[in-house]
């Protein structure tokens, strides 16, 4: 199988890679770019652990062929902080003890940020609705919902 050259922007930086048609975005990120914050939890779209932004929209890296990101922009959990300064959603997760084992956390944070872009003042019901594809086995979601609510609140005021 011949390898295909692709160019893309990852967390603000231009990159090139040679990929096989059957390479998945999740493995490009994890194994080639060493961005292991994007997690494998199921590989078939059911857990949300691999959630990243592709051209500013949430997608699941386990169900995307790496070749198809040619010319696109990808943001992963590693791309959120500005230097040592965390993204406010990351801070809100920290402050609200929304992190236990942390394996769902990157995907949760990506999804929560996307929600804020689409709906800056969500009700609790809307938060729960939006987050439903990201599963967490540890927290029971209470603190995660709280973290998102608090973030929304802080942005308002």
């Amino acid at each position: 199988m011949k390898k295909i050259p692709i160019k893309f922007t990852i967390n603000g930086q231009q990159r090139e890679a040679l990929v096989q048609p059957n390479d998945l975005l999740i493995n490009l990120l994890r194994d080639e770019l060493y961005l292991t914050g994007t997690k494998y939890g199921c590989g078939i779209g059911e857990c949300g652990a691999c959630t990243v932004f592709l051209d500013d929209e949430l997608v699941l890296a386990c169900l995307i062929l790496a070749v198809t990101v040619d010319g696109k922009e990808i943001t992963t959990i590693e791309g959120l902080a500005r230097g040592k300064e965390l993204h406010p959603m990351q801070i809100s997760f920290l402050k609200n003890a929304a992190v236990q084992c942390g394996f769902c956390t990157p995907g949760m944070i990506m999804t929560a940020i996307s929600l804020m872009k689409e709906n800056p003042d969500p009700s609790e019901e809307e938060i729960r609705e939006y987050m439903r594809g990201n599963i967490c086995r540890c927290t029971g979601y209470t603190q995660i919902i709280k973290a998102i609510k608090e973030y929304a609140h802080s942005m308002k005021g």
């Binding site: 199988m1 048609p21 059957n22 390479d23 998945l24 493995n27 494998y40 590989g43 062929l65 070749v67």
Partner: peptide, 13 residues
Amino acid sequence: NTRILANKFEYFA
């Protein structure tokens, strides 16, 4: 195997 796509194929876009 859900970690990789083991199937090899030719790709058109």
